[in-house]
């Protein structure tokens, strides 16, 4: 029983982290907080992949003179790429947040939607009159 728990404990906690990230993205109205949630989700996906590559008794995949067991290097490569792409998308997201704040004066979803609605009403009234 304990073995079964240890065998999957990593996966479960990583999934728990993922779900916290997802919950932040869905439930929080602040745009910066949403991006932080996305980052948490992203990091836990990285951890999931690296967990899959771990081999018991293995070492980091760097060749030495003596024969050794290595952990799977392929997920490492994949995640190296993903981390760098992730920071690029984060930068883009933050740039959008700054831009939204300039146009709407707020980074709270509710305020932005309210401004949008008010502007729509003004536009409709102008068209009618």
């Amino acid at each position: 029983m304990l073995d079964a728990i240890i065998a999957h404990y990593n996966y479960w906690l990583v999934i728990f982290l993922m779900m916290i990230g997802l919950y932040i993205v869905i439930s929080r109205g602040n745009l910066v907080k949403k991006i932080v949630g996305l980052n948490i989700f992203q990091t836990s996906v990285f951890l999931l992949y690296i967990t899959l590559g771990k081999v018991n008794g293995g070492t980091a995949p760097i060749l030495t003179d003596k024969p050794e067991t290595f952990s799977n290097p392929l997920p490492h490569v994949l995640i190296l790429t993903a981390i760098v792409v992730g920071v690029a998308t984060t930068a883009l997201g933050f740039a959008l947040v700054v831009r939204i704040r300039e146009s709407y004066g707020s980074i709270e979803e509710d305020d932005i939607l309210a401004t949008e609605r008010a502007e729509d009403e003004i536009a409709v009234n102008e068209a009618l009159s």
């Binding site: 980052n39 990091t43 590559g53 771990k54 995949p61 952990s71 997920p75 995640i79 981390i83 760098v84």
Partner: peptide, 14 residues
Amino acid sequence: LDAVDVAFTEAAVG
């Protein structure tokens, strides 16, 4: 988890 390269990048970039 033996992913030293990834850890390096995560510490620097993340």
